[in-house]
Amino acid sequence: MKNFWDGLIQAIALLVSGDAEVYQVTLLTLFVSGTATLISVAIGLPVGLWLAFRDFPGKNICLSIINFGMGLPPVVVGLVVSLLFWRYGPLGMFGLMYTPWAMIIAQALIASPIVAGLSFAAIAGLNPKLRWQLLSLGATSWQANWLLIREARLGLLAAVMAGFGGVVSEVGASMMVGGNIKGQTRVLTTATVMEVSKGNYDIALAFSFILLMLAYAVIILLTILQQKGRKAW
């Protein structure tokens, strides 16, 4: 128990002292995971909504692929992205390996199926007769879809939270494509793993507490947005 208190005190001390490296690692974590989440929302949300609003042959196969992707091991994603962006890989000419952008791409690939799957579930969980009622009242197809999206906004924002939670805590793919380079690609998760490997458990706990505080701050903002305008029962 003493180690946990030491880690918490160390985390507060690092933040209060204005340690440049800690703030750089924290800001890079927010940038990488935040950007990856935005990209995953831009990809996953339309896909999830499209699957919810459309019926077509092979829909169940598409859903099974998305559901499979929701549990895809991050190290597999990291390996695939590494092979693509390695110097002699098909996309090696872009020079993205061991850069924050490689980490963003890997994390976006991890989060996109999560956002897509939960977005589909949020819309599919609504009363199936609701859309037909809206259309019968004179709403156009686009208006009906927009009203359904508003009705399912709690679930859709929960999908965004799940996507962010999936990437901000990710370490395997980030290590593989980022390399944990000091001042360039080191984020809170990879820094924690490094300190554990060196036996510095107090500093590792400090990084862990900072990561938890960062994640909770973002989730608080998303929760406020989610509950804004929601009527109490």
Rank of each mutant, 00 (worst) to 15 (best):
F120E: 14
G78K: 02
G229P: 00
E151C: 09
L188C: 02
L14A: 03
Q10A: 15
A108R: 05
T29H: 08
G7C: 10
V22N: 02
S64D: 07
V167I: 07
R131W: 04
M194A: 14
A111H: 07
W50R: 09
M97V: 11
L221Y: 02
R186H: 05
A217Q: 06
W233L: 15
T192M: 13
I9K: 09
S119T: 15
Q227N: 13
L84T: 06
F31G: 10
G58K: 00
L148I: 11
D202L: 05
L84V: 08
S136W: 01
V171C: 00
S136D: 10
P74L: 12
G199V: 11
D6L: 15
K129F: 05
G44W: 02
S33Y: 07
F68H: 03
A13F: 08
G34K: 11
F56G: 07
K198S: 12
G179H: 07
V41H: 15
F94Y: 14
Q133L: 10
I65F: 13
V47N: 02
L157W: 01
A36Q: 06
L214P: 00
A191V: 00
V22T: 13
V196M: 15
P74C: 12
L126Q: 13
F85G: 01
I203N: 12
T185S: 08
K59N: 07
V196H: 02
M97F: 10
V47H: 01
A158T: 14
L38A: 14
W146L: 11
W142P: 04
T29C: 05
L137Y: 01
A106K: 01
A52R: 06
A217I: 03
V80L: 13
V76M: 06
A215K: 09
P90V: 05
A173I: 06
S119Q: 09
I114V: 15
G89I: 06
I149K: 11
L84H: 04
I66P: 03
I224Q: 09
G179N: 07
S33T: 15
Q143H: 04
L135I: 12
K228C: 02
A206E: 01
T140I: 04
N60S: 09
A152S: 14
T192L: 08
Q143W: 03
